[in-house]
């Protein structure tokens, strides 16, 4: 009962997202009111379920890569042997985020060609900073007394990392991942400009053809997806949150 209630809000948003995905066609009347002049008011070049699937795929792949590299780099930079790289790691991650994703796309397309790959690279770089920054903050924020006791008790470096540092830093690390993924759900839309078909398609197509209804549909879907995912993250059980 309590378990169910915990998930009620995210499930509600997911239901709304699903309803919008499958039922967009039923809203013909509403969108005709927004965009009275156009012949067609519901985006139809691809169905919304496919677009949603591709959007999720791109964001997930970028997120998995950013988590692996970001958390990995932050762990390495906080080990005794990696301390020297600490400033470098945090600077690189900052540069990743100050670099606009559009610019990354522009640079990546000549190398990687059109399609999904350049947008994954752009999202990966853009999503790296929150993850690196929060992982560093989480690991550095552990009570020095706890670390001293862990070493003094005779735990090995690996044991300290897995049994003490990661569990205690988990809430902060997850908060970073949450920020990264939520931002990237929105940012992924620009992938539509380089031929990665996703929920950005209706928006770009709407702008190009002067069809506001398309833009609203794309924005609505992306917004619902971002809120659903964010809401799911907020309900994750955290062992280290005490």
């Amino acid at each position: 009962m309590i378990e169910w209630r915990r998930w009620a809000v995210p499930l509600g948003w997911l239901a709304l997202l699903l309803a919008a995905t499958l039922g967009m066609g039923q809203l013909d009347g509403l969108f005709r009111w927004i965009e009275a002049d156009s012949r067609q008011v519901i985006y139809a070049r691809a169905d919304f379920l496919t677009l949603l699937g591709r959007h999720l795929l791109v964001v997930s792949v970028a997120a998995v890569l950013a988590i692996l590299v970001g958390v990995g780099a932050a762990i390495a930079a906080t080990r005794a042997w990696g301390r020297d790289f600490l400033p470098l790691v945090s600077q690189l991650a900052s540069i990743g985020q100050t670099f606009p994703p559009v610019a990354v796309l522009a640079l990546a397309v000549p190398v990687l060609g059109f399609g999904t790959l350049p947008i994954i690279v752009a999202l990966f770089l853009y999503g790296l900073l929150p993850i690196v920054r929060n992982t560093l903050a989480g690991l550095e924020g552990i009570d020095p007394g706890v670390m001293e006791a862990a070493r003094g008790m005779g735990m090995s470096g690996g044991q300290i990392l897995h049994q003490v540092e990661l569990p205690l830093a988990a809430p902060v690390i997850l908060a970073g991942i949450r920020t990264s993924v939520t931002i990237n759900i929105a940012t992924a839309a620009i992938g539509a400009t380089v031929g990665a078909s996703n929920l950005g398609d209706p928006i770009i197509s709407g702008i190009v053809n002067g069809n506001t209804a398309y833009v609203v549909q794309g924005a609505l879907m992306i917004g619902l997806l971002a809120i659903s995912v964010d809401s799911l993250f907020s309900r994750l059980p955290l062992t280290g949150s005490r």
Partner: peptide
């Protein structure tokens, strides 16, 4: 080995260093 040595000795500190989780 450092770990072996430390496991043979009890260690108690002012901040206790108990694992909060």
């Amino acid at each position: 080995r450092q770990e072996t040595l430390r496991r043979r000795m009890g260690y108690a500190i002012q901040s206790t260093g108990l694992f909060p989780h």
